[in-house]
Design a protein around this nucleic acid. Structure first.
Lengths: 226, 226
DNA sequence: GGTATCCGATACCCATGGGTATCGGATAGG
DNA sequence: CCTATCCGATACCCATGGGTATCGGATACC
């Protein structure tokens, strides 16, 4: 990958000094919120790529087109910056899961579609997967982080359980196991596949993830065995 | 947890100077291999508890009853020490998985037993789980680590697949899905449960893990739905 | 028992990077 | 315009901890 940032300040490239004239016309300043947003996005990338401990605040700042000053002015500390990312992701995650539930109508095709969507997300959105691992790792050792991560994970499991309940009901079948337990299995299998894919992308590719998820979902929704 | 080490050198407590006499009788030196073993064990504990980056070599050395000198004399670098742990665990892991396969004879009870054993290991052996996470995290960024971790994981998946094949065959049933895929699902679910338990021990307790594994294994071995 | 070697303890080096103090230009308010 | 405030850039501080050089006692070999 490689992060690679052009040397930029205030969102303006600095490497070529264009001062062949001289009237030092004032450069407009970016709104604070935009600065914050850019730092946040850059920090996600860098934390995902290098991991928390090996991510230097200066690298993050430069990746966003600023210097450490901007980071400290907006977030106050490395830990707080990480916390802001976690918070943002937790919100987005819950929204995404909830939105995905009521998208489709056809129950039998839904299994195929859900399996494909999740598998693609695992295979393509590596930032998501890596950040998830980082969140988990830090939650082990940091009480504050755990206080955000654990409820987030519970909500995801609950959402999965709700989906199983909803769609089996809609299809008029009874699930082979308790939907709550099904939610746990789905959630943990998804996370497990994601982690495994990160470590061994060839070993667990998108197709394998998709097949695994489809098989499991098929069982859970009472599909006739093929 | 808290690591907490008594101040010890050569395995002999140093905090109380017993030099009320004076003939400085020679203290026997520990065999090199024993030193190495103790450092390795201590390093596993510390790495698991604090994570790679936050583990200080001096802490590890003291936890083992030595100083940094012993660590560098035996391993040469922090990375090499971690590599030695990984290597040792990889060997032990493969052996354990292989040994577990031919233990039981009765196929129907085997599912219950296997589920319980794995669930207990997830719930109790937190060092194992944490080290596994650490291995995965480092494998993402370190080519050498990945070269050990990825094959290890593949072997585990293959072993799981082999178990499914063996026991369905023995029971005279055909598994509902390809045994290879079943191996993937079992392996990833197990890892997912382990990670989830570490982050949220109350949310995913031993009972939950056991139920999840038993349900899945029951399905895979063609058990009649209850 | 004398000498060479081994190996862990000790003291030290120094790059690193999180955090802080200060500066100065841009904006806002009058 | 002129001033106060904001906020990111810059320069700096310094604890930290991986790594190295050296020491000295124990072991091994003759």
């Amino acid at each position: 990958m490689g992060i690679g940032y052009p040397w930029v300040c205030y969102g303006v490239r600095m490497d070529e000094t264009e001062s062949h004239g001289n009237p030092p016309e004032p450069v407009p300043r970016l709104p604070r919120e935009e600065v914050r947003r850019r730092v946040l996005v850059a920090a996600e990338r860098v934390f995902a790529e290098r991991g928390y401990a090996d991510s230097k605040l200066e690298d993050i700042a430069h990746a966003a087109g600023f210097t450490k000053g901007a980071v400290y002015s907006n977030f106050g500390s490395k830990k707080a910056l990480f916390g802001a990312i976690l918070e943002a992701r937790a919100d987005a995650e819950l929204a995404a899961v909830m939105a995905g539930l009521d998208e489709a109508e056809d129950v039998s095709a839904l299994v195929d579609q859900a399996a494909r969507l999740v598998a693609l997300r695992i295979a393509r959105d590596t930032v998501r997967g890596r950040l998830g691992l980082e969140f988990a790792t830090r939650a082990l050792r940091d009480e504050e982080t755990r206080a955000v991560v654990a409820p987030m994970r519970r909500a995801q499991r609950a959402a999965a359980a709700g989906a199983v309940r909803t769609y089996t009901e809609r299809a008029g079948v009874t699930p082979p196991i308790d939907p709550e337990l099904a939610g746990v299995i789905l959630h943990c299998l998804t996370n497990g596949l994601s982690m495994e894919h990160l470590v061994d992308p060839e070993g667990i590719d998108a197709t394998t993830s998709e097949r695994a998820l489809r098989a499991l979902l098929g069982w859970l929704t009472g599909e006739a065995p093929s």
